[in-house]
Each structure stands twice: as C-alpha cells, then as structure tokens.
Simulated scan of single mutants.
Amino acid sequence: MNLCAICASTLSYVYLSYYTYKETGSLLYSQIVLFSPMVLPVLFVGQIYRLSDRVSPRTLLLLSNILALLVVVVVYSVLSTVVLVAVLGGVAIGTLDALQRVGRIVAIKSYFSSANVESTIPLTLTAQFIAGGVAGGTMTLVKGDMMPSHALAMTALLFSIASVASFLLPRAERLTATIIPAPHAGMLETFASLMKSNPPLRRSFWHFIIFVSIYQGFFNVSRIVLPAYVLGLSEGYVGALQAVNSVAALIGAVLYYKLTKGGRSIAPFSMAVVSAMFMMLAAYGGGLSSSYAAYFLYIFFFELAFFKLQSDVLLATPSTAMPLVASVQYAGVYAGMILTIFVGSLLVEYRGLLWTSVIFAGFYLVTGLLRPFGLSRSSNLANKWSRVERDEDA
C-alpha cells in the first residue's frame, strides 16, 4: 500500500514539475508546483489532526487513496490543455499525501509496541524511498516524451492498488486522546501543553523539524534543477536521479535497521555534517558521475539522521498524543520546506545551486551548534522517556 500510494504521489510531483518547466521554460513555475503540495497541510493542520484523531488509520488511508485516484483522473485529463492545472493537482495530491503520512505514523504507534518502534520505522517508511526510484524509473522507461496520458495510466493504477491494500489492513482501535489540558483547549494550546510537559519530545520534535525542512527542502529544489538546469540533461536523467535517491535511501534504511537491531546507536548531528558535505559536492555539478555519486551519499547520510530523529519523536510521544504530534510535525516540516524551496528557488535563480547548498548547509550546521541542546542529548532523553512510558504501560 505504502509503495503504491507514495510512488503515485512522487511520480505526480516530479512529472508535473518537469512538465511545467518543459512547457513554460520557467524554473519558478516548476518550483511552485513542487511546493504546492505542502500548502494546505500547513493551513489546515487542525482539520487534519481532528480527522486523524477521530477515525482509524485504516479508514484514513483508504479514503485518502480513493480521493487521490479521483484527483489524478481529473488533473491529467486536462493537463495538456491547461498547463497550470499542475499547481492545483499538486495542492490536492499533496493534501491527501499528508493525510496518508499522518495515518502511517499513527498506524506505527497503534500496531507496534514501543520496544519495536525504532526498528519498525525504517521497514515501514522505506516504501516511500523505493517509491521515488520506481517513479523515476518509469520516467526513464517511457521512450520519447512522457505524455499526461502515460502519467494518468500509471498513477491511477497505483492509487487503485493502494486503495485495495488499505481496505485489507487489519482493524485497530482508535486511540482516545487523554492529553487535553482544559475542556475547551484548542489544538495549539494542547500541543503547547504537551511540549512543555515533555522536554524530550520538545527537543526531538524541533530537531526533526529544522533538519528535515532544510535538507529535504534542498532535495526538492535540486531534484529537477540539478539534472535539467545545472547539468543540462534530458527527462530520462531527471528520472534517473530519483532512482539514485531511492537506492541511497533504501540502503540507508537497511543499515539503520541492522544497527538498531544490533543495539548500535547513531549520532544524527554527525550524519547531518557528512550529508552536508556531499550535498555541496553534488551541487557543484562537475559532471554526471561525480554529481550523482555525491547526491547518493548526501541522501544516504540524510536518511540515517532522519530515521534516528523520527524514532526519537515517536518514542517520546505518548500513544494517545500521536495523531496530534504527527499532524503538527508534518505541518511544521511542510511550512519549513515551503520556505526553503521558495528561498532556494530565488538563490538558484540568482546565485546557482552550489551557493544554495552552501547557504542551506551552513545555516543548519550553525543552528545546530548554537542551540542550547545537542542532537545526541535529545536522543538519549527520548530513549529514557520511552522507557518510562513502557514501564507505566507495564
């Protein structure tokens, strides 16, 4: 289910962005398509939270896939006539994708015990990394220009399979929220109260938001710009870069799983530093082989840090608060990515991709060093908090 749904969404983002760039010749329009999926999840975070809190993750995933199927049928049917419908398509698909991402996180917390969360995350979320490769691979396999009708056939099939798979998921009882501090407290008040009462979660949460916003924001800026603009390559190489990204992330997920199963821990800040080095090497654009190899390593080390930080958030979050934390987490990440994509697009336009990578990496590393808490310390606190929660459950 995850593989098909995320593959269809990723294929839509990449293809709609590339199609817009090809038809209009505007990098700005292309980047607008890329950040359009993140707009509504930020504006309607409260509605996403209430929906994910009131229905089971199975129902949430099923409805999201069915609605996404209807959206791609409409968007790709009129894309060749109205190019900028790609923006509306990105908004709709991105909102449904956000619902599914929240549903997956809630499902992990619902279906698995705290003791198994850290090793479960890479296995469950790896589908989104494989999906990027499949999406890229489909673009390289289509000979000549990939038409909207090709994209329609592939995405409709994938969302159909995902809908059936969602229906076959086991039923799980909906967790009843117990953390509301006052009878009429709103979502933000409830979230603020949770952050104040749970320091490990507060530290892990903000580390995750800052890290993913910057690093994945650069990924969204570069995955079209690097092959199509910096290296001047064709559509097939745009797809090939998605495959490089997926292979790197998949290998990172497998390694993370083996390390955690073996009792080994990962220092996310160190992984972020190494990832930043390869981010800048990839953006240098010295050639196809060197840029793509560096991009592989940039994503590989990014994923190691990502899995650790996501694990820390889940381990530090009480089960009944998972819909709230997951909803605000994705809204925060999307808001951060919108900002980095917008800033990155302007930087690419006037300073190039290399300087964009230097500024992004430098900002994160300085922020990490100047903050009054370290990534490794928050990880240890999150693990301690999770042990306390397991003791209370017992």
Results as ranks from 00 to 15, higher is better:
L250H: 08
I251P: 06
I251E: 09
I251Y: 07
G252R: 01
G252Q: 01
A253E: 00
A253V: 01
A253H: 01
A253P: 00
V254A: 13
V254R: 10
V254S: 11
L255V: 14
L255H: 06
L255F: 10
Y256M: 09
Y256D: 05
Y256H: 11
Y257L: 14
Y257T: 15
Y257K: 11
K258L: 15
K258D: 05
L259S: 06
L259M: 14
T260P: 02
T260H: 14
K261L: 14
K261N: 13
K261P: 03
K261E: 13
K261F: 03
G262V: 03
G262Q: 04
G262W: 05
G262T: 04
G263K: 08
G263E: 08
G263P: 10
R264E: 14
R264W: 10
R264F: 14
R264P: 04
S265W: 09
S265L: 15
S265P: 03
I266D: 04
I266L: 12
I266Q: 03
I266F: 03
A267P: 08
A267S: 12
P268Q: 10
P268M: 10
F269Y: 00
F269H: 01
S270R: 11
M271Q: 12
M271T: 07
M271I: 05
A272P: 04
V273A: 07
V274P: 03
S275W: 04
A276N: 13
A276D: 10
M277E: 08
M277G: 15
M277Y: 12
F278M: 01
F278G: 02
F278R: 00
F278K: 00
F278H: 01
M280Y: 00
M280K: 01
M280D: 01
A282V: 07
A283F: 06
A283K: 05
A283H: 06
Y284L: 13
Y284I: 04
G285A: 09
G285H: 10
G286V: 02
G286R: 04
G287E: 01
G287I: 00
G287V: 02
G287F: 00
L288G: 01
L288D: 02
L288C: 02
L288R: 04
L288E: 04
L288H: 06
L288W: 05
L288I: 14
S289K: 09
S289V: 15
S290V: 12
S290L: 13
S290R: 08
S290Q: 11
S291G: 04
S291C: 04
Y292L: 11
Y292R: 09
Y292T: 09
Y292N: 10
A293I: 14
A293C: 11
A293S: 15
